[in-house]
């Protein structure tokens, strides 16, 4: 089981010959991910870590049967890479690139909806289903197979929580970052819908941050439809208003998007919010033992 990626994932890496693409292809293969192809325009015919490189996504998918793509190309080329992936026949695209223009993402998400293709990211650290498959840039050694689903707007903060949950003796079903940008392919609710149907997942740790109202909407969704234990953490309690805190989407504007509002929204629907990341493991234990 697990969600999004598993033993049936056949991965194509877009931007496989770049510094990050090449490094993380090796890491993913070492983790056990089935990387079947890479794409870099103009470098078709080469191979990297024994993975064949193609010039186009179409050739890569036709030649290898790849069903999932991961994008490591620089932000400037990422929009085009997502469109190319969507037209190639893969059903899941995971975009690591950070800094994709927001209006491009408006077009991308609208197009993918018509095509029936799911996008995770951009500005995502990837998706890992421990024991099956790791796609993206997460450090593989922190995971342990288990029953906790983890979904986050952040990258490294996600690792922090995974680490805490693993150290507390719990494992993970699937762990993913949905991306820190204003417009992203899949939001918290889209992912909770998948965790809801996943038999392996018993509880969910959700990591939000300042900016926007996605957490408030998710709290309403949880109240209405989500029947598994959820614990949360919100980053940015100390963030000053009006300043973008690294992530394009992490900004308190016009008094909206504060950590305080998000924490209140979760607590109001019975989702406990950790004060520091490591506490998430304790809260999860308490929730599961009830």
């Amino acid at each position: 089981m697990a969600i999004l990626v598993d033993e049936n994932t056949k991965l194509v890496v877009q931007g496989i010959t770049g510094r990050d693409g090449s490094f993380h292809t090796k890491q993913m293969i070492d983790y056990g991910t089935n990387v079947v192809a890479g794409v870099t325009p103009g470098k078709g015919g080469q191979s990297i870590h024994d993975v064949p490189v193609f010039d186009t996504m179409k050739e890569a998918v036709e030649g290898t049967g790849a069903n999932t793509s991961v994008i490591y190309v620089p932000a400037k080329f990422a929009t085009d890479a997502v469109f190319e992936a969507a037209d190639s026949g893969v059903k899941l695209i995971i975009c690591i690139a950070e800094g994709v223009p927001t209006q491009d993402m408006a077009k991308v998400t609208s197009y993918l909806k018509c095509k029936g293709v799911r996008l995770i990211g951009p500005n995502s650290p990837g998706v890992t289903s421990p024991g099956y498959c790791k796609v993206g840039i997460m450090p593989g050694q922190i995971f342990e197979k288990g029953t906790i689903g983890i979904v986050s707007r952040s990258g490294t903060l996600t690792y922090e929580v995974v680490h805490a949950i693993t150290q507390a003796g719990m494992g993970q079903s699937t762990c993913l970052g949905i991306g820190g940008d204003q417009i992203i392919g899949s939001n918290f609710i889209d992912i909770l819908e998948l965790f809801r149907e996943d038999a392996q997942t018993e509880g969910v740790a959700l990591i939000g941050e300042i900016g926007g109202t996605a957490e408030e909407e998710t709290a309403e969704y949880i109240k209405a439809r989500f029947n598994k234990p959820v614990v949360a953490f919100i980053a940015g309690r100390t963030a000053p208003p009006g300043k973008r805190m690294g992530h394009a989407g992490a900004i308190i504007s016009g008094g909206s998007g504060t950590a305080e509002d998000k924490i209140k929204a979760f607590e109001a629907v019975g989702v406990p919010v950790a004060e520091i990341p490591a506490q998430m493991a304790d809260l999860m234990k308490e929730k599961l033992n009830k």
């Binding site: 952040s154 490294t156 903060l157 996600t158 922090e160 953490f233 980053a235 805190m245 992490a250 990341p277």
Partner: peptide, 21 residues
């Protein structure tokens, strides 16, 4: 810090333990 989320959480934890980033 590396990563915006962790950087925010690092500020928050400094505050949590009684100081200011």
């Amino acid at each position: 810090v590396n990563g915006a989320g962790l950087a925010m959480a690092t500020m928050d934890i400094v505050k949590y333990f009684g100081s200011e980033p």
